[in-house]
Design a protein around this nucleic acid. Sequence first.
DNA 1: AATGAATGAGCTTTCATTCAT
DNA 2: AATGAATGAAAGCTCATTCAT
Lengths: 210, 210, 210, 210
Amino acid sequence: MKKNSKDSIVEAAIYLFNTKGFSGTTIRDIAQKANSNVSNISYYFQNKHGLLEYCFLKYFESYIAELESAFLCIDQGAKATLQKMAESIINYHTENMQLTRLILREMSIDSQTVREIMSTYFAKEKYYFKAVIEEGMITGEFRQVSVSFTIVQLKSLLSMPFLNTHYLSEVLHVFPHEPYFTQKYIGEINNWIEGVLTPHHPKELVFESI
Amino acid sequence: MKKNSKDSIVEAAIYLFNTKGFSGTTIRDIAQKANSNVSNISYYFQNKHGLLEYCFLKYFESYIAELESAFLCIDQGAKATLQKMAESIINYHTENMQLTRLILREMSIDSQTVREIMSTYFAKEKYYFKAVIEEGMITGEFRQVSVSFTIVQLKSLLSMPFLNTHYLSEVLHVFPHEPYFTQKYIGEINNWIEGVLTPHHPKELVFESI
Amino acid sequence: MKKNSKDSIVEAAIYLFNTKGFSGTTIRDIAQKANSNVSNISYYFQNKHGLLEYCFLKYFESYIAELESAFLCIDQGAKATLQKMAESIINYHTENMQLTRLILREMSIDSQTVREIMSTYFAKEKYYFKAVIEEGMITGEFRQVSVSFTIVQLKSLLSMPFLNTHYLSEVLHVFPHEPYFTQKYIGEINNWIEGVLTPHHPKELVFESI
Amino acid sequence: MKKNSKDSIVEAAIYLFNTKGFSGTTIRDIAQKANSNVSNISYYFQNKHGLLEYCFLKYFESYIAELESAFLCIDQGAKATLQKMAESIINYHTENMQLTRLILREMSIDSQTVREIMSTYFAKEKYYFKAVIEEGMITGEFRQVSVSFTIVQLKSLLSMPFLNTHYLSEVLHVFPHEPYFTQKYIGEINNWIEGVLTPHHPKELVFESI
DNA sequence: AATGAATGAGCTTTCATTCAT
DNA sequence: AATGAATGAAAGCTCATTCAT
């Protein structure tokens, strides 16, 4: 009768953690939404917190995989690679908006989970970003910039819209769920790469902007 | 005996909501940290949620005031004004990092509070950003851009570093609390204004980058 | 500004104790309804329970006074006196319906208050009822009946309609507040005195009694 | 380990609600007396109020069943039927004195529960009383009386002794728990039916009295 | 005489978890 | 693999009362 109890629990958890926050969600909420029994959560994930950790892992495994895959074409140039990385992340975030929002929010809470589980993933993520930026600076594709501050900006631009989807849709009337958004926002990121990271060779660059 | 019970409750609440999340914080935690009595929370703020709302109002009243004040110099040019607005916000966020982080996180939860309380503030904020961007496009200081997508980016850049302070300090070794950060990050935002918003007049712009 | 704080507190208390029960009413409810301050309750009545006791005394002082006054005409015959006593009680209950209902309900709770405060009043009440019934039995106006069981019935008939006013009005469409009710119900009590207490055929019936 | 948690909770609740009133009883009291856990009250009855409603239903289901069963012999005459109904109610009240007292008291509080839950039961009860009284008036067994006012008296006589058991035992020294009381009080009710409801045909009636 | 801030105890309810099946 | 009853801890909140003014 139940397709897959474990999966439906995770699905329900992502939705509810995202909507009401981790602490604001009860395991009964989750069990009910998943059409499962409360005890199954303990059974599969040890306890409520284990379920959250599972969600974190689920997110980061894929996230890093996307990043890794995009990084493979580094020999085609730093700019192209960075553009591909940004595009991959935006696509991944768009396709997993609930999970992304949950991670981005809970990450900002000061907890053991964040420190322990995520440090390795963040280290990897930093490695790829740093590598591509430094490569670009060496080849002259990028200006000489602060790697850290560049990563700060890049991550800001790639995360925020998915964290504040309400704000986007209700205040700015920009709808991250629509396919048009993804396309357009990738263009904006490329503009940022051009305008902020790339050295100004006047003639060509003017025509890149939308 | 107690100097100011109400204020110390708010202060404790901001710290704890920020550190452990709203749902993850108990009113007993707050009362204890504030050296006050649990009942006083109900007494002053009706209930736990009222205390959160109070924090929201506290943040937004000042935030909008900062924005409004910076907007006053609009006759000195759109770019200068936008730079001043960004600087004001960064300064305000730096000085109220705890509160800012709390607001930015809880805002992303799907609740009545967010919708009802904040809609007016967001409308005002949007008004100022839109006004300055459109002014810039009219005078030719800014390129022709999508107002909404520009606001998305601007808000991303102005918020994210204050939401993920752990990440910045522990992964990137960038410390938002240090005075150097503020100064440097304001420069980065100005770069963004130059590189992304300002039309390329080759000669001058090259020298603006840090 | 306040006419009489004490009186308005009592008035509010009677209404609220009656509507929501003693334990179900908070002193803040009372203070608010009385347009007074919470602390005044402690000031005037020591504490919440003192206020209840005050209500009990208020009721019983008047109640016993009514009974006493009606009993004075005992030399005009037992039946006439009993009728007058019943009429007085019904009138008093009608005029103080809220207070009456409150007393009748709280009396049924097993508490110190009931035992201590009321025992003297109940003793007095019993004395008058017993006196009039026994007088009637001596003079032959009444049949030989059990005094206790007669008092049970009499008190039942004189109390219940005022305890269950909702039931009367909503189920039976009998409205104790209307003047017609009082008049009619006094008639019913007199019927009861006639039919149950008075011998039908003086000579024979005397022997029927238990 | 626990035999029947639900039943023991109900039993404890009836005793305590009766003794201390609904609002005056805490669920900790109940759980302790029932040797159960506080949470089980929520588990079985949703909340404290749900437990009260359960008691109401428990009472009325049986009460109406008694009434219905007694009403079946209506073809044996209205008076006999009414006597049987009264007897059934007195027996039921005697056997369930705690519950009865609880219901009678809480019924007098002005609440949603009373209005919603009980209206149907009261309608049924009224139907049976009305039917038997009207039948009696048609056949000439009963005098022409007001149905409503007769029900008021009947219910008064059948309820009050069970509501004020303290008063009966401590003031009047009448003990409703003793078997003698039931027998005697049924006799009193029959006297009331004879004296108040039955037309006076001197010769015959004399022999009917007990 | 009256007020409003402050207190601490205690209440109802919720929750994550465990146990027996 | 899955269920539902049961548990103890703790959470949010309420309340009668007191204190300082």
